[in-house]
Amino acid sequence: MRDLESHVARALALVAPLEAQSRPLSRALGLTSVRDVAARDASPPFDNSAMDGYAVRSDEVRAATTASPVRLPVAGETAAGAPPAELRAGAAWRIMTGAPMPAGADAVVPAESTDGGTAWVEIARGVDAGRHVRRAGEDARPGDVIVRAGETLTAARLAALAAVGVSEVVVVRPARVAVIATGDELVDAGQALGPGQIHDSNSVLLAGLVREAGAEPVVMERASDAPEQLLERLAAADADLIVTTGGVSVGAYDVVKAALAGAGVEFVRVAMQPGKPQGLGAVHGTPIACLPGNPVSVLVSFAVIVAPMLERLRGEPTPGGGDPETATVARGWRAALGRRQFMPVRFTGPRTVEPATAGGSGSHLIASLAAAQALADVPADVDDVTAGDTVTLVRWSR
């Protein structure tokens, strides 16, 4: 039986980072930056007001109080988007938030500290130099690195790049993942079930998992238990990675194994529970991961095998790496001694978990899977997980 680490290493060896391409910010959300991205412009690009109020020379109003206000003529007014003005000595300049500071002014008196006058203004509270002024470049200067290579382009990062004048980024395009469910027993969700039939939840599950992982799912037509039909489906797949479900064990009708064993795909038993039967290889030059058919096994296999492959495809330097997330067990369960167990769990508190199902990590418990929020990674040498134990958590989405 192969240990999981060795199996994941073989899976990662099948894939390589996809080609980089330049994309506008509007088409880069969720993708990974290939290189450091530096600011083109300063942020803010010019000194501007942080408040609605009056731009002043601070030394002329510093002594102002409610009892002894300073009265100044209003020399002009500037709104956001207007060109900068110039403030003469002995005057104030009405200014709106974001508007450029007039030359000669070094502070802004908030409107609420004045009488709001438009010809003359009474200032009831003084300010020091620099007060309520956003200085040019205080957030970022040209050349400052805003996004590092390998970072995911979130909405906040894209907004930051836009603010410093960047309009395009070099990214790894989303991986295309062909999803093929197999089995004569499968019918579409909502269709009436005949004898021995079940609804196809795996196609829905895998397509969602692929999309949550930042890739593009391509759901292929289901394949029956006839190897020839599966081979036809695989030949038509236009993808960077193929993922199949079902037909990988030792049954008489295990179609994936029957069609692909000895044709570039290796079928093995991996020391994990659930998800022991697995297949890895390439078909027509395209990497393929062949997962079991039971839904919980599909989820677990995706989280620990397929997700790192997608990370490698999008160019992440350490697929499956990062600081481990841990939690305390609130209610224990029976482990799978001799195999690494991945138990679906739900949170009972900020850092405490319990089993998400009454049936443990049974690979068929798809309805109960709706309550699962993470997987608890239990080492192979553990027989029982008890309340108070610390477990490492595995997430199945980014």
Rank of each mutant, 00 (worst) to 15 (best):
R2N: 11
D3A: 00
A9C: 05
L14N: 09
A16F: 06
S33W: 00
D41E: 15
D52M: 02
D52P: 02
Y54Q: 11
R57L: 14
S58T: 05
S58N: 07
T66W: 10
P73L: 05
G76A: 10
A82R: 08
L87V: 13
A92V: 03
R94D: 00
P102R: 03
A103Y: 03
V109Q: 02
P110D: 03
P110V: 12
A111W: 14
G117D: 03
G117E: 08
I123G: 10
I123N: 11
G126T: 06
E138H: 08
R141Y: 01
D144K: 07
L153H: 08
A155R: 15
A156D: 14
A160T: 02
E168T: 15
V171M: 06
V172F: 14
I180W: 08
G183D: 01
G194Q: 12
G196P: 05
N202R: 09
V204S: 13
L209Q: 06
A215Q: 04
A215Y: 01
M220S: 09
D225L: 06
E228G: 03
Q229K: 08
E232L: 13
R233I: 06
L234F: 07
L234Q: 09
A237H: 12
V248W: 07
V250H: 11
G251S: 09
V255L: 06
V255E: 09
V256S: 03
G262T: 00
E266V: 14
F267V: 01
A271Y: 01
Q273G: 06
Q273P: 01
Q273Y: 12
P274C: 04
P277G: 08
Q278H: 11
L280P: 08
A282L: 00
P292W: 01
P292Q: 04
G293R: 08
S301T: 12
M309I: 10
P319L: 06
G322C: 02
W333M: 11
P344Q: 04
F347V: 03
T352H: 12
E354Y: 04
G360Y: 05
G362P: 00
A367Y: 10
A367W: 08
S368K: 04
L375T: 04
L375D: 08
A387I: 00
T392K: 12
T392Q: 13
T392E: 14
W396Y: 02
